[in-house]
């Protein structure tokens, strides 16, 4: 089975709220000092899901693909170290900070150019914009079925069997390939590459393409939504810290305050 894993390099989502800043004029996030960009965590879980399918089958190829600035090569190498076979970095004019619409166009075009792809794995949403739009866009552009928010994926008779997380439970579906599958955190932790794998990752093939290489022009990379404002909401703390000599006394005081405030 030939699989593509799509990954996005993002500002570290673990950045504490106090260090999170936005340039409102440029409508961009200012990366916190001393933090390095990371692979969006759901995307690492997508890579893990693809690796498990490859291990289950004992064969297959995993291509790792990223759309974004040249620095995203580092993110691709991280997934090559996990065990992916080759990488594709699609960057250049119009692709430094593409929105969901442009990104889906690029991934769909790249999947066609790579060819013979049976499945595309992606994180359920990128942990920067938290949209969860690109995977369905790619599926629509390719005319493939989609299965979203998966916690387990196995191959069965040329199909994929996927366990999905629903808001009120779980669902098992079978999908005919080629298909797009998105992975949620319930899949579990992605593997850590060993030192030797990290060294070898540098020798794996990493192709660099531009939008033009994929036959896409600037018009196809136009966003469909205009970002009018990006800002940090102001929240003022009005906390009343409950006093007490002991935890038991604090508990009693809390119960009393909740009653006084007519909350209970």
């Amino acid at each position: 089975m030939d699989m593509i894993v799509c990954i996005k390099q993002i500002p570290d989502p673990e950045t504490p709220a106090s260090a999170f800043k936005v340039d409102e004029a440029a409508k961009k996030v200012i990366p916190a000092q001393g933090t390095q960009p990371v692979v969006s965590p759901f995307d690492l879980q997508a890579a893990e899901a693809a690796l498990r399918v490859k291990e289950q089958l004992g064969s297959g190829t995993i291509h790792v693909l990223s759309v974004g600035p040249a620095g995203a090569a580092q993110a691709i190498k991280q997934v090559l170290a996990m065990g992916a076979d080759d990488g594709f970095l699609i960057s250049g004019p119009g692709l430094d900070d593409p929105d969901a619409y442009a990104t889906a166009q690029v991934i769909a075009a790249a999947a066609k150019k790579i060819g013979n792809v049976d499945a595309i794995f992606m994180g359920r949403q990128a942990a920067d914009w938290d949209e969860g739009v690109v995977p369905m866009g790619v599926a629509e552009l390719l005319g493939w079925p989609q299965v979203t928010v998966a916690k387990a994926v196995t191959a069965a008779d040329g199909r994929l069997r996927v366990e999905r997380v629903l808001q009120d439970g779980f669902e098992t579906v079978e999908v005919i390939t080629p298909a797009v599958v998105t992975i949620s955190n319930e899949l579990g932790d992605p593997r850590y590459p060993k030192l030797q794998q990290i060294m070898m990752a540098g020798r794996k093939p990493l192709a660099q393409w531009t939008a033009a290489d994929l036959g896409l022009d600037a018009g196809q990379l136009q966003s469909r939504m205009e970002l009018e404002r990006l800002y940090v909401p102001v929240v003022e703390s009005q906390v009343e810290v409950i006093e007490g000599e002991s935890p038991a006394e604090m508990a009693a005081n809390l119960a009393r305050r909740l009653r006084e405030a007519r909350i209970i």
């Binding site: 009343e240 810290v241 508990a251 119960a255 305050r257």
Partner: peptide, 30 residues
Amino acid sequence: ANMVKAARFAVVADFKQVLPSLIEELRKLR
């Protein structure tokens, strides 16, 4: 903790020592 700042009321203590008393107090109130 961020949650303490966002709260209206906060008890800064180990939950293991707070919850048994809190449950008992609330039972009495209710």
